[in-house]
Design a protein around this nucleic acid. Structure first.
Lengths: 349, 349
DNA sequence: CTGTTAGCGCATTCAC
DNA sequence: GTGAATGCGCTAACAG
């Protein structure tokens, strides 16, 4: 068997020194050309550029990072990238970062606070210039410490005081939109599958529901509100309980689209036509919403924009890093609330 | 307005020198403790660890990377992270990387070869230790160059010769499973919505279909095969064409689940009961497959495993980086083909 | 078991 | 316009 005599280390990478030697100038001149800084005569600039091309030189972000203390990298921390919600947020973040020349580290926390802390630590070691932290499960205290540890942080879907940059969804408005639409269509007895007990977004949406019902002077019954897990199956079971217990209901607002799909199944089992006998509204506009029969009316917010706005805020801050976070200092809005919109389909026309 | 006299730079980070000074040892000793290398007396180890804790010292991956030429980072290149397929692959990749202490850069190519090249370049500058490249749209030539530029590369869903590590889905087997299942249920006239013309996976699945039909000595008609776009709407239209043109068909195999959902809608329009009059099989087992009515029988492969296997191969290679890629040298399998499985549901029981 | 020397590749002062 | 020295924070290779 042919065996190479030496371990055959890959040839060492081309460095800025190689380019300088090739052109016959100092490293500094090459550096200036590459970073477009300082004045360099057009002639030498040209020769440097050619040499860079010829040698296939790629500046090392690592070395540059060590020298400048800026790495051109961001961290993106999400509970689960396989969750379409965060996948789309990630898309928005990556696009924004890419367009500004940044690379982003993707980190899953798996909803585990310990792992979240761990991941944040590793990003710190990587010396990221900033972090987008989604749906943090950290305690207020830990969260504050984490925020302080980075040059710049933007929170998504989690608040932590006015002075921490944040992008959230206006869930109360979402709840109002859904409820208002049903009321406008003549519904008076509206049930609410409110999702997991501790859910912030569930609470917000429920609050919006309460506001609209109250302002329309409609009756509200505690038994019309039923908590449930965030899945289709749990939605089905909860809808069954609700519809059997409160036959007067003519509409159901569901914590999310999966729950709404479950409610659809429940109605089919009970022989209740949708939307004829029961109208159904979901939240999120996940892909399945448009594919089920009848297609779901649902309340959506651009998850892509959520991510895009988050990096936007982040990079804004990254750039002023090093300056005091002065209050008046032209600081842009710290808390952005994205407004959802109602997508009207067949389940609640 | 109160204005700070100086730009108020954040206090410089703690370095290994600070820790060394605090403990009264050399930097090397601290380094040894941190990296668990070399022998250090239990006593000093303890004192170093305490100082690290006390000062909140975080070693800089950047500096370490410059010194060791290993960054502890990987690149993950996908066409679109918002596509659930790649999101799940990403999950697998991230998990595997995390468990081995690596961080991963997420890069979207948006299906654009130019951008893919660009992104690969930026990863090179970041000096990643390896790259997982999914569904590359690069020409064979460009792909080969890209592969050569990195210490280690693993391809997902794209082949490039035997000596490039690759993880793919066995689409031919998938096609055979779907077809075989229908034949076993007594179907003899089976149509095929074959997806986009250039699709590799579509071709593979179609090949599997042909193999099974032939081995069962069943008649095959060219008009039973209908190409279509990869969406529900295009699936619906194609199914309409197919079912109207070939009334004898009792089963439809669909390029993917979205197309299958479209076929479901088409059957409803034509008043043909599923599965009574037409059985339908999809591919991929996307979330919607289980939620439509009737639920879809579909052929799935673990996308999570696809990612997990890819990082597995990658890290295996990263570790032997620097050695010649000797053929016999205990080199593990370069090409892994994951076997899909059939998930039987109501649309083709 | 521990310390010293040197350098990873680049950018930031300053000089010229 | 350009170059020379110096250091970013850390570890490899040797000493001791």
């Amino acid at each position: 068997m042919a065996r190479v005599s030496e371990p055959a280390r890959p040839p060492d990478r081309i460095t800025i020194a190689d380019v300088a030697r090739e052109v016959g100038v100092s490293m500094m001149t090459v550096s200036r050309v590459i970073n477009g800084r300082g004045d360099v005569s057009a002639a030498t600039r040209q020769r440097v550029l050619e040499a860079v091309e010829r040698l296939g030189y790629r500046p090392s972000s690592i070395a540059r990072g060590l020298a400048t203390r800026h790495t051109g990298t961001l961290g993106l921390v999400v509970p689960d990238i396989a969750n379409p919600f965060f996948a789309e947020v990630a898309r928005g973040v990556e696009e924004g970062a890419y367009s500004q020349g940044y690379n982003v580290f993707l980190c899953n926390t798996d909803e585990d606070p310990a792992r979240e802390l761990d991941v944040l630590g590793s990003l710190e070691e990587k010396r990221v210039d900033g972090v987008v932290l989604c749906s943090s499960r950290l305690s207020d205290e830990d969260l504050q410490m984490a925020v302080d540890a980075y040059p710049a942080v933007v929170l998504v879907n989690r608040r932590a005081g006015q002075h921490v940059a944040t992008v959230v969804v206006d869930d109360v408005l979402g709840g109002r939109l859904a409820t208002g639409h049903l009321i406008a269509r003549g519904h008076r007895a509206i049930g609410f599958l409110s999702g997991p007990q501790g859910s912030h977004s569930g609470q917000g949406r429920l609050e919006g529901y309460a506001i609209e019902m109250a302002s329309a002077r409609l009756r509200r019954e505690t038994r019309w509100i039923e908590p449930c897990g965030p899945t289709a199956e749990q939605g089905r079971l909860a809808a069954l309980r609700l519809l059997r217990g409160s036959g007067e209901l003519t509409a159901l607002i569901c914590y999310n689209d999966l729950v709404a799909v479950g409610a659809l199944h429940a109605c089919r089992e009970l022989g209740r036509n949708v939307p004829g006998s029961v109208a159904i509204v979901g939240f999120d506009d996940i892909p399945v919403a448009a594919l089920v029969t009848p297609a779901l009316t649902t309340c959506r917010v651009s998850r892509h924009e959520l991510g895009a706005r988050a990096v936007g805020l982040l990079l804004e801050r990254v750039r002023r890093e090093g300056y005091a976070a002065g209050e008046g200092e032209g600081a842009s809005t710290a808390v952005v609330a994205l407004e959802p919109e109602l997508v009207v389909r067949a389940s609640a026309p």
